[in-house]
């Protein structure tokens, strides 16, 4: 899933204080599952804004509405009236959400309340970790099902580097050395010989660095 974290409150205030009628729009898919931007979190943010604006005597209102996914127009159309009536739409989705709203409702002022941070796996309650950077050329078959592109600080494809210490990455004792993990996994699979093979240069043109991407599928067109 995509995870996103809320921006610092003062940044949100700095934007929202300029507007009277603020509509906080929650997104009930990825950011809800990562417990930061779903219906409940949108209501908490709205409540905080109301209290803070009330203290500072800022006129207007802060209301909330939540859609299942802000990245799909059909869901956005369902809140069209509320969006158009607002002076500012504050989205608690990943950055796709506010862009989707801005595109669907030209003329509406939209602000993100969140910073998108990663595509993640759920490690446990309240804990997510980045497992993919969408390079567009997945090679984890050779690395025991573990992605060094997303999970190595240096994006090494022939690791580890000399900064691997006791299974930890030199950048922080909290970060696992993914090449240690890959090593251990390949050993347990009886494939440690793979480690002796040098991987050639990676094709980066399929990644974001190769320019903006879009995806189309062949088949039925309605």
């Amino acid at each position: 899933m995509i995870t996103a974290e809320r921006k610092p409150f003062e940044q949100i205030r700095a934007v929202t204080d300029q507007f009277g009628k603020v509509l906080v729009v929650g997104c009930n898919t990825c950011v809800a599952v990562c417990l930061t931007g779903g219906e409940k979190e949108a209501e908490v943010l709205a409540s905080q804004l109301r209290i803070a604006r009330g203290q500072d005597g800022i006129a207007g209102s802060v209301e909330t509405v939540t859609v299942l996914r802000q990245c799909e127009n059909e869901y956005l159309d369902a809140i069209s009236e509320q969006v158009k009536a607002a002076d500012l739409v504050l989205s608690t989705a990943c950055s796709i959400g506010p862009q989707g709203i801005a595109e669907r409702f030209p003329g509406v002022r939209v602000a993100p309340a969140m910073n998108t941070n990663m595509m993640a796996v759920v490690k446990g309650h309240h804990h997510w970790a980045e497992y993919c950077v969408a390079c567009g050329d997945c090679g984890i078959f050779n690395t025991g099902g573990i992605c060094p592109i997303a999970r190595c600080a240096k994006t090494l494809i022939n690791g580890p580097c000399g900064g691997s210490q006791g299974g930890r990455c030199e950048i922080s004792p909290d970060v696992e050395c993914v090449w240690q993990l890959i090593h251990d996994q390949l050993v347990s699979l009886g494939l440690e010989e793979n480690l002796r093979k040098i991987s050639g240069p990676k094709k980066w043109s399929s990644a974001n660095t190769g320019g903006p991407r879009s995806m189309k599928k062949e088949g039925f067109k309605p």
């Binding site: 610092p8 409150f9 003062e10 908490v44 905080q48 804004l49 803070a52 203290q55």
Partner: peptide, 8 residues
């Protein structure tokens, strides 16, 4: 934390 953020 939420109170601190909003200046309470």
């Amino acid at each position: 934390r939420a109170l601190q953020e909003i200046g309470l």
